[in-house]
């Protein structure tokens, strides 16, 4: 059974329709790359999955359980939204680390507040996570003392600390200098080798091609094309996809 299933998702802001019927599913351990031109609705899709926005219509199910149903008009309680959110982790383009806490405390804060384990165990697993993203020597540094790439790796560790079923990335390297993107992409690749289920919005085409099991091309609120990387990148069917890929690759 698919771990994530999104059915016919709609979202508009006032009069602008941003998502116009999004359908896709994701198997456990799969990596889905979402590409597409600016304003296509990629960020909005991730934000709907994480309940930072509420979709207008459609269904979101995780592991067969419906966690959002736009047709049910009862209001979901804050408590329930928080529980549903924990299926997902989100890594932001701008990192959004908590500046007043060290790297370690950034990772342990939420698990401690949610009391998912004893403080000692939380601390130990946070150190393990920071080690995994290559920051074992930076546990006691504050975000302002870290480079952008290091900050983003802390943010990844922070998201992993709650063991989300699906980890979402919204252009995780777009705010980074080119020489720092590599270190973040390597961490994501390593996660794939550990069978993490991931949903990655990215403009790094080469990376998407190499790491993704499935690629979605989004334009104007709909999924224009979906398939394996070789299907989407090497044999795109839709004209919009072709035009987008031509533009993306002609830079090189």
């Amino acid at each position: 059974m698919a771990i994530l299933e999104v059915k016919n998702l709609y979202k508009c802001f006032g009069k602008t329709e941003v998502l116009k019927g999004i359908n896709f599913s994701l198997e456990k351990g799969e990596v889905l790359a979402i590409i597409g031109s600016s304003g296509g609705g990629k960020t909005t899709l991730l934000r709907c999955l994480n309940f930072l926005e509420t979709a207008d219509k459609g269904k979101i199910s995780v592991d067969g359980k419906v966690i959002f149903d736009g047709d049910e008009h009862k209001k979901i309680s804050d408590e329930e939204i928080r529980k549903n959110r924990l299926h997902f982790g989100l890594v932001f383009q701008q990192f959004n680390l908590f500046p007043q806490y060290t790297a370690l405390k950034n990772v342990t804060l939420a698990p401690n507040l949610l009391k998912v384990d004893t403080p000692e165990n939380i601390d130990a697993s946070a150190r393990k996570l920071l080690d995994r993203v290559g920051l074992s020597d930076k546990v006691d540094n504050y975000p302002c003392e870290l480079s952008g790439g290091q900050q983003q790796r802390v943010a990844i560790a922070r998201a992993l600390a709650l063991n989300p079923d699906i980890l979402c990335f919204d252009e995780p390297t777009s705010a980074l200098d080119p020489e720092l993107t590599g270190e973040v992409l390597r961490v994501i690749k390593d996660l794939k080798n550990h069978n993490s289920t991931m949903l990655i919005v990215t403009h790094e085409m080469e990376f998407a091609k190499k790491v993704a099991d499935k690629v979605i091309f989004m334009a104007d609120g709909i999924i224009e094309e979906m398939g394996t990387p070789s299907e989407v990148f090497d044999n795109p069917k839709s004209d919009k996809t072709k035009a987008f890929l031509n533009k993306s690759f002609e830079v090189f």
Binding site: N50, K83, Q94, F98, A110, L113
Partner: peptide
């Protein structure tokens, strides 16, 4: 910044927390 709140929400924290 709104991002600070959103980071908290995504990590399952309550508004008060």
């Amino acid at each position: 910044q709104i991002g600070q709140y959103e980071a908290g929400y995504v990590l399952g924290m309550t508004k008060t927390q």
